[in-house]
Design a binder for these strands. Structure first.
Length: 196
DNA sequence: TACGTGATCACG
DNA sequence: GTGATCACGTAA
């Protein structure tokens, strides 16, 4: 049986390290009696002390769960269309989070294709909006406990290769000025499921 | 490159 | 109330 990541994983202080550690882990959802899972191949770290983060300007209605204790989901609607799934980290009032940007499908591929109205599985979870839809994630999961029964992240014995992580700047946050240049996006090297 | 889409937030 | 903005995806 695979091992769910526990609260001690999420409540560490170094969100950049957590973003790296999440690569190779498996995101699992059980939603509407449908089970899906996929290996995490792309993440981005967000810290409340830099302009790229939703929490930079303080607590608002939307970002409130980012200020919770680590180990809950932060899900919000982006551009009126896409749900984006984040993992809240660090201790209470330290509003750090990791955006999950791409997965390699493992379980429930037929269901993912249904949800996406897609004919093939190809690149169906390569991007944060797409993977949320394919996994059945929406704002109902905002604030949900990541050690519960709807959504969690687990280990399955997958071994990360040495030197297998590529870092780059984060996507789509040009408004953050020089903070947009921070190399806080992490991908699995040469993995074809990474987003474009 | 351009734009749909709707919640959210900072103004009054 | 109102308007600008947005951690995307797809089409062209």
């Amino acid at each position: 049986m695979n091992q769910k990541l526990d609260l001690s994983f999420y409540r560490r202080k170094d969100v950049v390290q957590i973003a790296k550690d999440l690569l190779g882990k498996v995101l699992v959802t059980h939603i509407d009696r449908v089970a899906t899972s996929g290996r995490i191949v792309e993440t981005e770290a967000y810290s409340s002390v830099e302009r790229g983060s939703h929490a930079f300007k303080g607590k608002t209605n939307r970002n409130a769960v980012m200020f919770d204790k680590g180990g809950v989901a932060y899900v919000y609607l982006c551009y009126g269309i896409h749900h984006l799934f984040n993992v809240v980290t660090n201790e209470e009032e330290n509003a750090d989070a990791v955006l999950i940007r791409a997965l390699q499908p493992i379980k429930g591929q037929e269901h993912m294709m249904d949800r996406m109205s897609a004919k093939t599985i190809n690149r169906i979870t390569s991007g944060p909006g797409k993977l949320a839809k394919a996994m059945g994630i929406d704002r109902q999961l905002n604030g949900v406990d990541l050690t519960g029964s709807k959504v969690w992240i687990e280990e399955d014995g997958f071994e990360m290769k040495r030197g297998g992580i590529v870092k780059s700047k984060r996507i789509g946050i040009d408004y953050a000025g020089k903070d947009a240049l921070l190399p806080w996006r992490f991908t699995l090297k040469a993995n074809s499921w990474v987003s474009v």
